[in-house]
């Protein structure tokens, strides 16, 4: 679906160096790395919001996929209610109001926000705001979902609930996910592949497939997850201390 070939990105200084990675359709990939390793920059490059300084980003069938983006903050428009926030991407693409309302209503159900359609962001909890943000990013039936530390500001219980819900949606909708996170356990639990970046300028120091026997609640407390966490954590800690 998406391929980075020798991608470099410089601002005042070098942020990413020689990134090579291929993202297959339907994959759930997490990107881990120390602060300043350029994790979020990879998402911005993938979304075409910014261009690489060197190298090439290519898409399957030479056509950029439809992209949904979720930021660390829910980034909702406080003057719009839940329904109108979710509708926004369809509205910008010129979809007729009755069609976009129907579509948004489906996603309100899928993310568990029934009854909150007319609430304003200021009336929602942090978890509910993030659900709106997720629904908004997926309402266009995106092929590629980019998540930039979406659960970082949430409490543990809300975070776990949202992780479970995201997994369910991903399994059902089968789109591709690139998740940037600081949390090793989140990355290992959620994804099929974990990419670890070095200290800035970020280079890929590990690209590890996660083979899971199951994805259910038992997996969260399994020895397998514990061992995987330990392996990835050691990689990251070694990089932080280097």
């Amino acid at each position: 679906m998406l391929k980075f070939t020798n991608v470099f990105k410089n601002y005042d200084k070098s942020v990413l160096a020689d990134i090579n990675m291929e993202v297959e359709e339907g994959e759930f990939i997490s990107i881990l790395g120390p602060s300043g390793s350029g994790k979020s920059t990879i998402l911005r490059l993938a979304s075409k919001l910014i261009k690489p300084s060197r190298g090439k980003i290519s898409y399957q069938r030479n056509k950029p996929p439809s992209i949904g983006f979720v930021f660390q903050d829910a980034t909702l428009m406080p003057w719009r209610n839940v329904l109108d926030n979710i509708i926004l991407p369809l509205e910008l693409k010129g979809v007729r109001r009755n069609i976009s309302t129907k579509k948004a209503a489906e996603w309100i159900m899928k993310v568990g926000l029934e009854g909150k359609e007319n609430s304003f962001p200021g009336e929602l909890s942090g978890g509910q705001k993030m659900r709106v943000s997720l629904a908004r990013s997926m309402v266009t039936d995106c092929d590629l979902l980019l998540l930039d530390e979406p659960f970082a500001a949430l409490d543990e219980i809300t975070r776990r609930k949202l992780e479970e819900d995201l997994l369910k949606i991903w399994k059902r909708e089968k789109f591709t996910i690139l998740l940037v996170t600081h949390s090793v356990s989140e990355a290992v639990y959620l994804s099929e592949r974990v990419i670890v970046l070095s200290m800035g300028p970020g280079k890929i120091i590990s690209d590890k497939k996660i083979f899971k026997e199951n994805f259910d609640q038992d997996f969260r407390n399994s020895q397998q997850l514990f061992d995987l966490n330990k392996t990835v954590y050691n990689l990251l800690a070694r990089e932080e201390n280097s």
Binding site: L49, I67, F69, F71, D73
Partner: peptide, 9 residues
């Protein structure tokens, strides 16, 4: 981020 969201769409 909101501006990026608009540009993305």
């Amino acid at each position: 981020n909101l501006l990026d969201l608009f540009l993305l769409n």
